[in-house]
């Protein structure tokens, strides 16, 4: 799997917020095998370089940092935060979030497309946090995005895949674009389900960070992602309405009345 030409072996991406301590975060990342972690600039730093201590701890983990624009509610905020991220982390990657509704944290897809275009033209490699809407996804690709990150469910809701049909359609519509289910996953089976749909990876934070044992949960998600991906490649059965006997019935001895 590759994102913008960068080859990765782990299909699990983790967020770095809400852990009990940076020490537990480090252990969880190690247990997950994740090679990419997201870091929120705006909320964790107060919008300045003041988050350096925390970011240094994250950098020391030896993983690739995908800075995000979490907490941005406008195109201008998101673009400014992306520029700050590029300077601080020396990366052109940016996970783009433009929040449209403060309560559900639903993405503002109109602002998202606009910000994605501005940033792509400026040399950023954009990972947009979006819905499963096909038309929006088309616009994001037109704007220069080469990775799409549709939500499974609202951020932190732990509801899993709210619209399996929509996510399947997106996969079918964009066979060559890396697709990452981002947000809303609560338990490892949600991650496995996303991978079984043929998604390239999943990104999650709260489900691990706020688990009773974040390190064990990180490991559980890693196993689920591997299981889901392996199952997808093994070409699973499609559901059917009728029973399909696994052994032949013709010629079987009639033992009843």
């Amino acid at each position: 799997m590759s994102f913008y030409g960068v080859e990765l072996s782990s299909r699990l991406l983790l967020g770095t917020a809400r852990y009990l301590s940076p020490a537990i975060l480090a252990e969880a990342i190690k247990a997950s095998g994740a090679e990419v972690v997201t870091v929120s600039l705006r909320r964790e730093s107060g919008g300045e370089r003041a988050g350096q201590s925390f970011w240094s701890l994250v950098r020391a983990l030896g993983v690739r940092v995908l800075p995000n624009t979490a907490g941005c509610h406008s195109v201008k905020e998101a673009v400014t935060t992306a520029h700050m991220a590029r300077e601080l982390f020396d990366t052109t990657w940016i996970k783009l979030e433009v929040i449209g509704d403060a309560d559900t944290l639903q993405p503002d897809v109109f602002g998202l497309v606009e910000a994605a275009r501005i940033l792509s033209e400026d040399g950023f490699e954009v990972f947009p946090y979006t819905t499963e809407d096909l038309v929006v996804a088309d616009r994001l690709v037109e704007a220069g995005c080469r990775v799409l990150m549709p939500w499974g469910a609202p951020i932190g809701s732990a509801r899993g895949l709210n619209n399996v049909y929509g996510l399947k359609s997106l996969r079918a519509h964009f066979p060559d674009i890396p697709l990452v289910v981002d947000a809303g996953l609560g338990v490892p089976s949600h991650a496995a389900a996303a991978m079984e749909l043929g998604y390239d990876a999943v990104l999650l934070n709260t489900a691990v960070a706020e688990a009773g044992d974040p390190v064990a949960m990180a490991r559980a998600f890693a196993l689920a992602v591997e299981a889901g991906r392996t199952a997808y490649l093994a070409q699973p059965l499609e559901p059917r309405d009728m029973a399909a006997p696994s052994t032949p019935t013709i010629g079987k001895a009639a033992l009843g009345d």
Binding site: R43, E44, S45, E48, Q52, S53
Partner: peptide, 11 residues
């Protein structure tokens, strides 16, 4: 509780 070392006033 914010992972920031900014000491300025409350936002």
């Amino acid at each position: 509780m914010i992972e920031s070392e900014r000491r300025g006033p409350v936002s």
